[in-house]
Computed example of a mutant assay.
Amino acid sequence: MYEPIRTKSVHSTPVRASDVPHRTREEELDIQLAGHLSALLAVTDELRACGSSADLDSAADKLARQVTRLRAGRAPMRVHADGTGHSPTSLHRRAHALAGRALLVAASRADTASAILAAQRMDAHTAALSGAAH
């Protein structure tokens, strides 16, 4: 009725440590931090498309430099949108959340430059959100 299994089970095959790729904790945190900062950069670029300011331009440059540093010289891919249809308020909320995540990972990694940048971006988005509420 059923055909017998003809191959060995993956569960019975011994796994050698050299067969599994390993990264250090620091490498994993760098990857996470670069991802959070890249996402924050994308939202910053969306905000710049809604209405550019010197603060957003400077933040985008700083974020791009940090991501490039964390990715060993590989610059982040940037898409310049013509306006996404998202409201600036929702973009500031998203950017604030992403900056918070980046701050947590940067603090865990003891990456002072990224932590300071993430904290500054959180403050800027908090100010923008409180200004939009009035």
Rank of each mutant, 00 (worst) to 15 (best):
residue 1 M to L: 10
residue 2 Y to W: 04
residue 3 E to H: 07
residue 5 I to S: 09
residue 7 T to Q: 12
residue 7 T to V: 12
residue 11 H to K: 09
residue 12 S to G: 11
residue 14 P to L: 09
residue 15 V to H: 09
residue 15 V to K: 09
residue 16 R to E: 14
residue 17 A to C: 01
residue 18 S to I: 09
residue 18 S to K: 08
residue 24 T to R: 01
residue 24 T to E: 04
residue 24 T to M: 03
residue 26 E to H: 10
residue 29 L to V: 02
residue 30 D to H: 11
residue 32 Q to E: 14
residue 39 A to D: 13
residue 40 L to G: 00
residue 41 L to I: 12
residue 41 L to T: 03
residue 43 V to N: 00
residue 43 V to T: 07
residue 44 T to H: 05
residue 44 T to Y: 05
residue 45 D to S: 09
residue 45 D to H: 13
residue 46 E to N: 10
residue 46 E to R: 09
residue 46 E to G: 05
residue 48 R to N: 07
residue 49 A to W: 04
residue 54 A to S: 15
residue 55 D to Y: 03
residue 56 L to W: 02
residue 57 D to F: 11
residue 60 A to F: 13
residue 62 K to R: 15
residue 63 L to K: 09
residue 65 R to G: 06
residue 67 V to I: 13
residue 70 L to N: 08
residue 74 R to N: 14
residue 74 R to F: 14
residue 80 H to A: 15
residue 81 A to Y: 15
residue 82 D to E: 15
residue 84 T to N: 10
residue 85 G to C: 03
residue 86 H to I: 14
residue 88 P to S: 06
residue 90 S to A: 12
residue 91 L to V: 05
residue 91 L to E: 04
residue 92 H to E: 06
residue 93 R to N: 05
residue 95 A to E: 01
residue 97 A to P: 02
residue 97 A to D: 12
residue 98 L to W: 01
residue 98 L to D: 03
residue 99 A to M: 00
residue 100 G to V: 07
residue 101 R to M: 08
residue 103 L to C: 02
residue 104 L to E: 05
residue 104 L to T: 10
residue 105 V to M: 00
residue 105 V to C: 00
residue 107 A to P: 00
residue 108 S to C: 05
residue 108 S to H: 06
residue 112 T to Q: 15
residue 113 A to T: 10
residue 113 A to K: 02
residue 115 A to R: 10
residue 116 I to V: 14
residue 116 I to W: 02
residue 119 A to E: 11
residue 119 A to F: 06
residue 121 R to P: 00
residue 121 R to Q: 11
residue 122 M to E: 08
residue 123 D to F: 06
residue 123 D to C: 02
residue 124 A to F: 08
residue 124 A to Y: 01
residue 126 T to S: 11
residue 127 A to C: 03
residue 130 S to C: 03
residue 131 G to Q: 14
residue 134 H to W: 07
